[in-house]
């Protein structure tokens, strides 16, 4: 076939037409894409507009401070400082962990501050979730009830608040996100320094915790974070010179099942290795078998996790507590 014949053949016509259509369409789409491309900033603005449906909000995006962004209970994804009329307010995109089936809830939280101190949450909007099959049972009023139920220890989704939704653990993850917002705003924007930030095993230990040292005996007054649905717990732990627990007493309101204190008399004489072993590597609250194998009550797993975290913190940091107290560093 000569070149001339080829150019006259149907095959050439087919290829030419198809190619030119593809080309025209491609160019057209490229042009439109350049015109209609939605930038990341625009997407962020849209997401923010959904949180504040009836008003124009101006904001600046902040870089998330990785030091405070993630704990076992939450992860801060994005942080914005609101400006204009909403001066002093912060908008955070947070993932609350430890929901139903170890899933998560993603939400937007509007945090308020006053005189450089955390002053509660204005609202929380749930935008997504993982494995939370019953999250539809949670209404706006339930979320508002959790926000209103804030006390000095943070937000709790259950027990004292008496909120009954049928999706306790999903609401727990939401409360975790709220507490995350509180912690993050306090440490990043209000400059509250957690004195235990560089201590080991400080998961679930709040900065309100105090301790005293006398004759080589450290007495901690530990206030744990809430691990919804378990509320924050205050515990007095005495650690002797052999770095094991001499006494372990829960001090806060003991109307809940976790307060069966006799179980925790078993804690006496145990050291950091024991508690680290029970909690396991990831501290996962689903680690039930580990708890049972070590004679720890099951049925209040999340409270147990808090108690174990406190015990681990107290024993593992014995040396540091003694040293810092000698320097006069303790409060």
């Amino acid at each position: 076939m000569t070149a001339k014949e080829f150019f006259k053949s149907t095959a050439f016509k087919c290829i030419a037409v198809l190619l030119s259509i593809v080309l025209i369409c491609g160019i057209l789409l490229t042009l439109c894409n350049a015109l209609l491309y939605v930038t990341d900033d625009e997407r962020t603005a849209r997401a923010v507009a959904k949180v504040f449906p009836d008003e124009e909000v101006t904001f600046e995006e902040d870089e998330v401070d990785e030091n405070y962004a993630e704990t076992a209970n939450y992860r801060v994804e994005q942080a914005f400082t609101l400006t204009g009329e909403r001066e002093g307010q912060y908008l955070l995109s947070i993932i609350g962990k430890n929901g139903y089936n170890s899933g998560t809830v993603t939400c937007w939280v509007v945090a308020l501050t006053e005189d450089n101190a955390f002053a509660g949450l204005e609202k929380l909007v749930v935008t997504g979730n993982e494995k939370q099959s019953f999250i539809n049972k949670i209404g706006d009023s339930d979320i508002q009830a959790v926000i209103d139920g804030q006390n000095e220890d943070g937000f709790t989704a259950y027990s004292s608040s008496g909120i009954s939704t049928g999706a306790t653990f999903s609401l727990g993850a939401i409360a975790n996100a709220m507490n995350g917002a509180k912690d993050y705003v306090e440490s990043v924007y209000c400059g509250v320094v957690n004195p235990y930030a560089d201590w080991t095993a400080n998961t679930n230990i709040t900065s309100a915790t105090t301790y005293t040292v006398e004759n080589g005996v450290v007495t901690y007054n530990i206030i744990t974070a809430a691990n919804s649905p378990a509320p924050s717990i205050t515990i007095e732990i005495v650690v002797g010179a052999d770095k094991t627990i001499t006494s372990f007493t829960t001090k806060s309101d003991t109307t809940h099942s976790w307060s069966t204190e006799n179980v925790y008399t078993d804690f006496a004489g145990k050291g950091a290795d024991f508690f680290a072993g029970v909690i396991g590597e990831n501290g996962d609250i689903s680690n039930n078998s580990n708890y049972a194998a070590n004679g720890i009550a099951i049925g209040a797993t999340r409270s147990n996790y808090l108690l174990l975290s406190a015990a681990l913190f107290a024993t593992a940091n014995y040396d540091r507590a003694v040293a810092q107290y000698a320097e006069g560093g303790a409060e």
């Binding site: 149907t10 016509k13 087919c14 037409v17 198809l18 259509i21 593809v22 369409c25 057209l28 789409l29 439109c32």
Partner: peptide, 22 residues
Amino acid sequence: KLIPNEVRIPCYIVVIATLVTL
């Protein structure tokens, strides 16, 4: 009238896909 019969389906698909993308 322009599109040859042999390649009409691919041509249609390209046109439709372009419109959908748009």
